[in-house]
Design a protein around this nucleic acid. Sequence first.
DNA 1: TGACAATGTTACCGATCGGTACGTATTTTG
DNA 2: CAAAATACGTACCGATCGGTAACATTGTCA
Lengths: 206, 206
Amino acid sequence: MSKTPARPTPATSPDRAPRAAERIRASARELFYREGIRAVGVDEIVNRAGVTKPSLYRAFPSKDDLAAAYMSDYDREFWPKFEKPEGKSYTDARAQVLAYIRELSRRAAGDGYRGCGLSNAAVEYPGHTHPARLVAEAHKKALRQRLRELAAAMGAHDPRKLGDGLMLLIEGIYVTGQQSAGGPAQSAVSVAEMLIDASVDSKRRK
Amino acid sequence: MSKTPARPTPATSPDRAPRAAERIRASARELFYREGIRAVGVDEIVNRAGVTKPSLYRAFPSKDDLAAAYMSDYDREFWPKFEKPEGKSYTDARAQVLAYIRELSRRAAGDGYRGCGLSNAAVEYPGHTHPARLVAEAHKKALRQRLRELAAAMGAHDPRKLGDGLMLLIEGIYVTGQQSAGGPAQSAVSVAEMLIDASVDSKRRK
DNA sequence: TGACAATGTTACCGATCGGTACGTATTTTG
DNA sequence: CAAAATACGTACCGATCGGTAACATTGTCA
């Protein structure tokens, strides 16, 4: 019945990419985000993926490495949402950041919102040597620098200050969004506007 | 040798307050904060407290309830630090909030900083019925309201907006402080100043 | 002293944890 | 087609998890 006779996957490419590993990544992605990494056992992951445990350990040396892969996937999915919020491209840095924060605040108001998977992982694993943490910290460092660039593009007097301010704000949305619905995240857009306007040349205020 | 003959504890009060329970609370407090709640086993807690496992379960129905007690302790220790930052009392709401953020940023720059135990617990336990989460969410609700009061006392046009902005900022310090040293938290004080000054009547700016 | 409450001691429970040895399908290749 | 390689499943491991039963010991107050 499920023959898929033609060519479900190329499988001719020398780069090994079995289907089980991808199903595991997707399953881990969902469960780790929803429940937390420590809360999810490997059995639950493989059951949901429709595969078995040895398949997991053939693709990933350990659960910690699977968690690191989850971090990399999360990071990869993040950047399009940040650079092209609401699906549109922006030339105006201010508009881009505000659009991202607007979209983020909307998501954070949803019921199943669980914040940033990377920040959450850093909470779950305090040790700075855990493989998942390394990916998360690299991501946060990159985001901080990108926000500083955007702050400079907005014409901020002190791009570092504005960039850090926006970073703190965004992380605040992440963490408060999962605490309670209708939380402070719903004020985030106007707060960001205030912050940006107060950071650029006062002559340019409308 | 360690007789403590006189009166180490009153022990006359009828309210049951044995010493083992307090040692367990203190041990849990430290370990839960440093390592995370899920990461710490009950054996580790009782070993560090110098007591045995049955003593734990005589004082607390379950580990989840001990976690909830940890939340309550954390909440109780929080408010003095917030209301009297740097050990001083403040009549000026702006000065108080800025002093708290200054003190917080200093702590967040330290090596072993692990953010807010209450926010971290909400990350570890997504389910909104967990006893620890209930305490944490009540705390965050109270803090949000208190910040709104303080924002009003500062003379903010929109106290809700400024209060939420400060809340997002503070939560941002919590979470980024434990990610990497020298992070965006070190810009928090000047960001808070900007936010407050932009929220109050512009005539009052210095 | 005797009664009582709090704690310690020891051994144990079932469940679940992350991880693996080993045999079986399935596919690729000559 | 047959053989080698690859992907997958069954069954299991020791360790640790949260939690408990039963009993001995201590300290306090009357």
